[in-house]
Design a protein around this nucleic acid. Sequence first.
DNA 1: CGTGTGATTGACGCCTGTCAACGTCTGTGG
DNA 2: CCACAGACGTTGACAGGCGTCAATCACACG
Lengths: 235, 235
Amino acid sequence: MKNTQNIPICDECAMNMKSIFTKLNDEELTELTFEKGCTFFKRNDIIYHEGNRPTGAYCLSKGIVKLYKTGIEGKEQIIRFAKKGDLIGYRSVLSGELSCTTAQVIEDAILCFIPGDILTKFMKENSTFSMEMMQMACKELGDANSFLTDLAQKTVRERLAEVIIYLKREFDIDDENFLRISLTREEIANIVGTATESVIRLLSEFKSDKLIELQGRKIKILNEAKLKKTANVYD
Amino acid sequence: MKNTQNIPICDECAMNMKSIFTKLNDEELTELTFEKGCTFFKRNDIIYHEGNRPTGAYCLSKGIVKLYKTGIEGKEQIIRFAKKGDLIGYRSVLSGELSCTTAQVIEDAILCFIPGDILTKFMKENSTFSMEMMQMACKELGDANSFLTDLAQKTVRERLAEVIIYLKREFDIDDENFLRISLTREEIANIVGTATESVIRLLSEFKSDKLIELQGRKIKILNEAKLKKTANVYD
DNA sequence: CGTGTGATTGACGCCTGTCAACGTCTGTGG
DNA sequence: CCACAGACGTTGACAGGCGTCAATCACACG
C-alpha cells in the first residue's frame, strides 16, 4: 500500500450526492468527517472477512468491491457489488452478527471507514437518516429475493444473460458499448452460480449468436433486446 | 369466512413477548391497539399479492404463512415462512416499493394489520423500535444471502436435507419427532427450488436411508446427524 | 526463460427436469 | 350410497444441461 499519497481529503462520503450521508445535518457531517478514516485499497485487497466481528461499515468513494460468501469447498458466491457512494458492511454492524460476507476489491478503491457506534448513534438520533438506512436495507432485501428466485428457477444460460444485463445497468457501458467492469471468467461464474467452464462455453455461444463481442475480459453488448429474451426478462 | 367468532380480542401483537412491538412504549401501544385490525384467514387465503402497492404490514398472532415470488411460468419460489409473532409485508411499506412477494396462509392464521403510516411514525419517533426493525431486516438479509449461496452451490439432495433441518429449527417437532408444519410435496419443491417429482424421489431415498419417516404429509426425523451430513451443514 | 494464473476446449457421465401414466384420497352431487 | 371430478402423490422412461476432469494454450511477471 504505497499509494498513500493518492488518498484524497475525503469529503466525498458526505458530499457525494448519491451517498446515504446526505441525510445527515451539518453537525453530524462534521462529526462524521472527524471520526471516519479513509484508506486506499488495491485490487484483490480484502476489506473485511466473513465470520469476523465487524467494527464498522465502509463507504466507497471510488472503485468497485465484490461481496461474497464462501460456500462448499471454498467456492465463492458473489452476493452483490458495491460502487462509488455505496455503503458496505452495515448489515452485520446493525444486526449485531458476524460478517456474513467477505468484501474484496475488484477495482482499486478508496473507502471511508465509519465506526459502528457512530453509525448507530446517527441512526438513533436522526430519524431521516435511519429511515433512509432502513430503505436501503429493504431494497437490498428485495434484490436478494429476486436473485434467489432466479437461481432457483432459471437455467445457467438465462442467468448468465441476466447477469450481463445487470452489469450493464449497474456499471454502465463505455462509448464502445463495452461493460465498464472487468471480471474474470471465474468471477462471472461465481455470480451466476455455475462452473467457470460453463461460463466460457456460454459466452462463446452468445458471441456466435451475435449477442455480445469479447475482447479478453471486456464484454461488448451487441444486441441487448435479444440478450433480454434469452434471459427471460421483460421489463 | 364464517369463523369470525374465532377472532380474539387481539392484544397479542403487542403483548406477545416475541413480537417486535414490545419495544413500543405504553402510549404507542395504545395507539397501535386502536389503529390495528385483526382478521382471521383460512388455509390458502392470500394476504397480499406480489406487485401490489402495500398499505401496511401484518403481524401474525397465530398460524403459518408462506411468502413466495412468482417466477417463470407461474412457478412459485418460497422465500420464507412466518409464524406467531412475525411481521410480514414491512419491507415494501418501508422501501416504498411494490410488494415483492405474495403472502399466503398455510395454516389457519390470525393477522393484525398495521397501517403503513403508523409503522413509519413509530420508526421515526421511537429509535429503539426503529433499531429493532433495522435489526430484523438485517437478519432477514443475512438469511437471504445464505439461502442464495446454497441455491447456487448445493445439489437438490443437499438442499432438501437442509430444508428439513430448517423446518425443524423454525417450527419444531412434536413428541413423536414429526415436524410441526405440514407442506405439500409441491410446496417443499418450491422451497428447495426443484421439481415436485425430485422431492418425492429424494424423500423416499431419505426414507430408505433411515433418515426420515413419512406418514402422508407428516415428516418424522429419525437421524438428524446424518441428515445434517447429507445437507453438508456443520454447526 | 521458468512459473503461475487465467482462458479454452474436449470427453464423459450423472443429476435433474420433463412428460406421461397411474394410484390415492377427499369432497360433492346425483 | 355410488360415481365422478379434482387435487395430490408416485413411479418410470428419457434426454440433455451442466459439472468434473484433464490437457493445452495465452499471457504476464519476476
